[in-house]
Design a protein around this nucleic acid. Structure first.
Length: 470
RNA sequence: UCCUCGGUAGCUCAAUUGGCAGAGCACGCGGCUGUUAACCGUGUGGUUGCAGGUUCGAGUCCUGCCCGGGGAGCCA
């Protein structure tokens, strides 16, 4: 038997609903229900849409008693038949099977973890290799794909170049969290120098290297030649963060624009996020509706629509602090200019006070890294965060410090060795330009759009502290 | 990492004051004239997270550890 990648999948068969047409479907059995009439209903899914297709398997099929009656959830099948109008109320059309081939049995149905009933997300997380077969994870996967596609469409249509920044890097991108070390040294035979320290000169790269925590510094180099660029790749943080919003391996979209200031940065961020919302609403309507039905307490479509049609709020850090002070809310931690805003503060502003996505910009320079551009007041830097309800921060960005002397001064203040950043400093010596960029936590956007509570459920195989089982 | 709640059958959960470890679903078998969380009957299924302790007796109480959820911090 020959197999080819098929274009005509269940989604297409259901949407064209061509009564009488001869169809072939390949997929996995979601459930089998035996009718009183001596035939069976099969619910078949191939991951192309939320709905499965109903197949009528009559007892006149030659393998009805020997095979069809023994099909269980998870078996893979190939079915040929004719599309007919369904007398049932839950679907418009169904397939009257002429031939049912079982491709792969579930050899021990009791051991197959997925059942017809609803499973907890925590349980499904333990069987990440099978959870894509559920409606929920199918929907999330299609949404993730759509957002990914929309990302490229957005930047490509604006002339941004997609660049591939390195995954392995000697740079620790100051302030972006803990690093995973990459080494080819045999850990039971570590080379030491005369001081008893690990001798990285004997390692693969002849120096210490890490997995990237951000492509930003490299993107700056390319923006300083190609004007507008973006990266979209995996990012690694070894922070011991145990929250529903953090992954040790996540995906980040990082545009970087030459000749662009902080306001231009926020403008682009706003356009981009709205483009994502708009296109996923259109592209994955059924998936989003399905997920919203699953968790009715989490509204998705209404806020998405409202955010697309409204201006995101823009407020400076200093104004935000004032607002919080005047709010008379019973915060656990009091607001104080010069310190990081607490989650409760951000949530109040974003969810309660404004009720929509907000940019907070111009943060105190003492809580931000060396590369952010120092403002006129010499107290704040041109940084911005975009917060959205329910998720919190999805974007962190800034205008970069393009002035050589100011950059060097900042590095001295923060005790950063300029020799580690010689090439980054070079960019300020040779045709420096004002430039800006940001990083968008892609998985967090998927989380927001899908309504999933835990970020571990929007990436196929999540990596978190103490968890990389498969 | 800290705070907090939890871990009982393959899954979702119950078990009163410390007193015989249960139900639904799944799976097997039988039944049923179009089902769709199918239904009816019946059967299989347990080291109560792990290791100690208290007690005549521990799923239940105590100590330590492991794992999971929620919150916080760090961030995207």
């Amino acid at each position: 038997m020959k197999y080819v990648a098929r274009a005509n999948r269940i989604k297409n068969i259901l949407s064209t609903a061509n009564i009488g047409a001869s169809v072939k479907i390949q997929g996995w059995v979601r459930s089998r229900r035996d009718s009183k009439g001596g035939f069976s209903f099969l619910d078949i899914s191939d991951g192309s849409c939320v709905a499965g297709i109903q197949v009528i398997a009559d007892r006149s099929l030659p393998n009805y008693d020997s095979e069809v009656k023994h099909l269980t959830t998870g078996c893979s099948v190939e079915i040929e038949g004719n599309l007919q109008k369904s007398p049932g109320t839950k679907q418009q059309v169904e397939v009257l099977a002429k031939r049912i081939n079982v491709i792969g049995w579930v050899d021990n149905p009791t051991a197959y973890p997925l059942q017809k009933k609803r499973h907890s997300l925590e349980f499904l997380r333990e069987i990440a290799h099978l959870r894509a077969r559920t409606r929920t994870f199918g929907a999330v996967s299609r949404i993730r794909n759509s957002l990914s596609n929309a990302t490229h469409n957005f930047f490509q249509s604006r002339g941004f170049l997609y660049i591939h920044t390195p995954i392995i890097t000697p740079s620790d991108c100051e302030g972006a969290g803990e690093l995973f070390r990459v080494t080819a040294i045999e850990l039971d035979n570590v080379p030491k120098n005369s001081n008893g320290e690990v001798d990285f000169r004997q390692d693969f790269f002849g120096r210490p290297v890490f997995l990237t925590v951000s492509g930003q510094l490299y993107a700056e180099a390319y923006a300083s030649a190609l004007t507008n660029v973006y990266t979209f790749g995996p990012t690694f943080r070894a922070d011991n963060s145990n929250t529903p919003r953090h992954l040790a391996e996540f995906w980040m979209v990082e545009p970087e624009m030459a000749f662009c200031d902080l306001e231009g940065d926020m403008d682009l961020a706003e356009s981009y996020v709205k483009h994502l919302f708009r296109s996923v609403l259109e592209d994955c309507t059924e998936d989003i509706e399905f997920l919203e039905r699953l968790t009715p307490e989490t509204k998705i479509i209404e806020p998405l629509t409202r955010f697309i049609d409204s201006e995101f709020e823009r407020i400076s850090y200093t104004e935000a602090v004032k607002l919080l002070e005047q709010s008379h809310q019973p915060f656990e931690v009091p607001v104080k200019w010069g310190t990081n805003l607490q989650s409760e503060h951000e949530r109040f502003l974003c969810e309660k006070y404004f009720g929509k996505p907000i940019f907070i910009f111009n943060y105190p320079k003492q809580i931000k890294p060396f590369y952010m551009r120092v403002n006129e007041d010499n107290k704040t830097v041109a940084a911005m965060d975009l917060l959205i309800p329910r998720i919190g921060e999805i974007i962190g960005g800034s205008q970069r410090e393009e002035r050589l002397d100011v950059l060097q001064e900042r590095m001295r203040e923060l005790n950063i060795d300029p020799r580690d950043y010689w090439w980054y400093i070079d960019l300020r010596r040779f045709g420096s330009v004002p430039h800006s960029g940001f990083g968008l936590g892609f998985d967090r956007v998927v989380q927001f759009v899908s309504g999933m509570r835990n970020i571990r459920d929007v990436i196929p195989f999540p990596r978190t502290p103490n968890s990389a089982e498969l």
